[in-house]
Design a protein around this nucleic acid. Structure first.
Lengths: 212, 212, 212, 212
DNA sequence: TATGAATGAGCTTTCATTCAT
DNA sequence: CATGAATGAAAGCTCATTCAT
């Protein structure tokens, strides 16, 4: 009994904190930093504005933790990615699909990154956990490129970081700029078929880029 | 009193209006819609907040005009692009360089597009001049693809819009996300040499994508 | 007509500003800095909280101006003091009465000084107008002491600053601490007769202090 | 379990309470009532805000106890004062020095009195222990004046309460207003030499006031 | 005895906007 | 054409205090 009580209490606190963090993630992603409203965060978290300050001290503090959590989630997902057993070309496609699908399934991540870039990554650089947040996937990609090269299916001289940026670009821009693109191109980019076509073409582009 | 006075006044008025529009473009691009401050716009335009309302009626009205002007500038630039005389592969590279250089030289355009996408292109779609703003370059690209195909240097089955999105992706994302990328990749993407390397690799990617 | 309009307008602004300053003087004096409430200041000034920030930018800015104005008023009063024509002993008594009466008639000045001392005179020292606020009366008192000494009615070796502090002490403390003193001594110090008795005794003390 | 545990606990509780009271004394003295922060008190007492309420019920309750304790300390010190054996003039000087030194050594007492006077001694008058807090020194001073008069060294007609107020004024004002005075007079009043000079002059003033 | 979690009310300040001439 | 004065609404944040165990 006595052992449970503090656990329950702590879990309530943790739950409240987590609800606020989740609500804030959505709010910051959709509205940007200045556009985000404490009241909306509190409501969506079924808590009060006061609790936001109780747990996160300030709007900026909350934002920073939201950002760190978003990167941490991405890193977690990246760590779960297993492509070692696949044939190099398949592995590369799997990698692309993983990245693109992550973006598609995490629109809030895209919103946060846009916001953070608007701020010139000021908060990200200040983050004490920055080193933990550095992506392990560039290394993964480097190893894959080497493996493919040894297997004679990839050409040499490709910078893994550059390849990563290219893959990210193709997945990210389509989603992040879908609204202006849809208006300007006169088609609805968010339709599933459109997205799949885009991924197909992008896959082809990456494939051709690395092939001998 | 004479005929000159109103002209001079008109010219001053136009100049003031133009200064406000320019200042607002920077402010909205850097700070987003909610983050933009009327006071800063007025100061940067060497005018007063009151004048901003005098000429543009509301923050949203000002923003819409800023957005329209930004797209109009892009269209102007696009219309000046001449690639008909070039050999198809050279023409495609020239096209890419044009797009990428435009992004690099107009960071405020990137800022505005990010802002507008955050708002799901609400203002863009409301814009009465939307049809004027629709890009002519997809058509241009379609013609080029056909020409290249006929010349036997490009493969068939490429969607011009998709190609345009790919080219835009590779140029835009690198710049728009340079701050978080620099932090996460541990290199300074804004260095000129880095940018040139990126454009080289991106050019190679586009080349390989369309070649037979 | 046209000459009057700006005057009227400016006068309104000045009047609003002045009302706010007066209201704030009372509020800060009575409640101290932390205890002062913007809302009460606005109400007493028949204006709005918003206008307080329009004219004074911040609570601290308002406080500083209140403090400067209070010192400026004292200096104005001091400059109007004429004791040169009086016989030295009479002049000294006139001086004392002037200081003491000023304190009695300006309880807000005492409140402000207490507040400012609680803050270790931080705002006063920051004031750009500090030099203007330095008291001219110590010089006045020095001249008087010399004159009295030459006339053979005052003794030598008296520091004018010390004399000033003594005179101020006797007038200030009685008023500033009247509430606790009344409670502890069991008599009502604010009664006019009590005050007059105190001034009589204090006058006698100063007289004896400087006399040969 | 044994009889020691509750004793120890009680002792810890008393110690915590005492630490809070001490911390609160400093906080209220320095910051005034409105300016005082529960959080700072808790920190300085190495306790928690919750404990402050546990022991003192409310901010006002805490303040009242702080005030009562401060007066009680003064009365304790006053009761230890022995001047009966001294020659009247020496006794008076000893009395002055005692009062002035007490002020100098208890800046928190000055801060509290200023705060309480700002509140028009509301809390002090409400205090149930007010009668205990009434100063015994006026009586002491009355006896001394009579003794000196009988001995032919003091003049008659001096109100002991008035003398007490004068002595207190000269010691209190110098310290309580030292910051604004230092700024306005252009000298550093808190320097030890300055203080001693002030006490010398003040001693002379009191001596001359009572002497025949 | 002790304490982490929670909160309502209210504070200072900011923002986009309008009034009045 | 131009502008200083004014403002309602709401934002972020703080404060003293209570709940629940």
């Amino acid at each position: 009994m006595s052992g449970l009580a503090p656990t329950r209490r702590r879990r309530d606190a943790d739950a409240t904190r987590a609800r606020i963090l989740r609500a804030a993630t959505l709010e910051f992603a959709r509205m940007g930093f200045s556009g985000a409203r404490g009241e909306r965060i509190a409501q969506r978290a079924r808590s009060s504005e006061r609790m936001v300050y109780y747990y996160f001290a300030s709007k900026e503090g909350l934002y920073r933790q939201v950002l760190e959590a978003a990167y941490a989630s991405l890193r977690d997902a990246e760590r779960s990615l297993r492509i070692d057993a696949l044939e190099p070309r398949d592995a590369l496609q799997a990698f692309c699909r993983f990245v693109w699908r992550y973006y598609a399934q995490h629109p809030e991540f895209i919103g946060l990154l846009n916001t953070e870039n608007q701020h010139q990554a000021r908060h990200l650089r200040k983050s004490a956990r920055l080193d933990e947040l550095v992506s392990p996937v560039v290394g993964l990609l480097g190893a894959l490129l080497e493996r493919g090269q040894r297997a004679g299916v990839f050409r040499g001289g490709i910078d893994p970081a550059e390849l990563y940026v290219a893959i990210a670009s193709l997945g990210y821009f389509y989603l992040s700029n879908q609204h202006t693109l849809s208006a300007v191109l006169g088609r609805d980019l968010k339709a599933a078929a459109q997205l799949e076509r885009h991924w197909q073409a992008s896959g082809e582009m990456i494939r051709r880029f690395v092939s001998r």
